[in-house]
Amino acid sequence: MVEIEAIDFNLRLYDPRVLKMKVITNVKIVDVNGNIVSLEPVSEREIEDMDDVIFDKEFSNTLLITFADLVHGEFEGVVKLYQIPENAQYIFKIYSVESNGKNVELIKICEMKKNSIVIKYYERLPELKEKDERIQEICSVAKLREEIVYKVVKN
């Protein structure tokens, strides 16, 4: 069974800039029949120094937060492990982000291939468009039906 990791964290930065950020990642899959299933982690552990590349792959380009920022600030975080069912076709990572009091949700979509997981779509905080526009783009890039995307994102 394929396993993936997701990260939740709280960060307070004072230098070089002031930032209070909280991120919770939810993982959902769309299976081959078009059903949407929310997954629960099978295990959790605290983030360690060795997680720097994992953390940066997850957040550096999307939230512009890097492991170096964690070192700079007060932070706590967990790495959650998810098992992906064999009938999964798409994995949705939905990041609920609270950044200096502003709430946004970012989406990343991966497609299950035979031997790999391919990133089909991801959103970046500094260039976030309106939700409807984003959903249209997701449908076109990931070749997903609009009602499925709406369900995943809204539910």
């Binding site: 940066d56 550096s60 512009l64 500094p126």
Partner: peptide, 16 residues
């Protein structure tokens, strides 16, 4: 802080 790079020239494989 800036907006970062939307299309980096290189994958992430090592620490900064």
């Amino acid at each position: 802080d800036g907006k970062g790079i939307a299309n980096p020239h290189i994958d992430l494989i090592a620490p900064c």
